[in-house]
């Protein structure tokens, strides 16, 4: 009789311990409806995309099939070289978006003194990006209204130190950028 009491007690204790340490999983119905949309902001060619560059080269503007990435090849020379309208950023939505450019990596060394992007909305300059300084620029978001587009100009300055009329200035390389846009203009992107 005593033994049976011990067995019963152990059984009850085991059940109680099991109840205390077991996880509880509760499931409520929740639905994330993912519906990819066409990109509201796209790259398009400017009037001088793929036009003549200096010394027989071409201002090569390559835009992928989705118009969401672009690559530009430019061939500046000494002093100041200005490329007008080599790329455009188009808002094909009816809503307003806000635009910045993130300079991810840039050129260092050589004769390069400055490199800039000038952003125009029509004839009005609405933004300037220093391509030799990494980070998100400009400080204020550039407004891109529905259906409108922005014109992208590039400007370079190269010093003449050690140069000659027959040689190109030093300071070549790749500047990696990100076009960042948002539906709001009061937050910093993560």
């Amino acid at each position: 009789m005593q033994a049976r009491r011990y067995v019963l007690g152990l059984t009850i204790a085991t059940i109680l311990v099991s109840i205390v340490f077991a996880s509880v999983f509760v499931y409520y119905p929740g639905i994330v409806q993912v519906s990819p949309v066409r990109p509201p902001i796209i790259f398009t060619e400017g009037s001088n995309s793929n036009q003549r560059d200096l010394n027989g080269a071409t201002i090569t503007t390559t835009i992928d099939s989705t118009n969401t990435s672009a690559s530009i090849a430019l061939h500046p020379t000494y002093q100041r070289t200005y490329y007008r309208d080599v790329l455009r950023i188009k808002n094909q939505d009816s809503e307003v978006y806000y635009v910045k450019v993130n300079v991810v990596s840039t050129i260092t060394g050589g004769n390069i003194v400055s490199a800039k992007i000038h952003v125009y909305s029509g004839a009005v300059k609405v933004g300037e990006i220093d391509l030799l300084t990494t980070g998100l620029q400009p400080d204020n978001w550039i407004t891109l209204n529905g259906g409108e587009e922005l014109r992208i100009d590039f400007e370079f300055r190269y010093a003449t130190t050690g140069g000659s009329p027959d040689t190109a200035p030093s300071g070549s390389g790749t500047i990696s950028l990100e076009l960042v846009y948002s539906t709001v203009n009061n937050e910093t992107p993560p």
Partner: peptide, 23 residues
């Protein structure tokens, strides 16, 4: 409800300087 959407596109500028066309 009010958070913004941020989208980024890659953009590459390949810079290859050239000699001056006019001296």
């Amino acid at each position: 409800f009010h958070a913004g959407v941020f989208v980024s596109y890659p953009l590459i500028a390949q810079i290859t300087p050239s000699p001056p066309p006019v001296v």
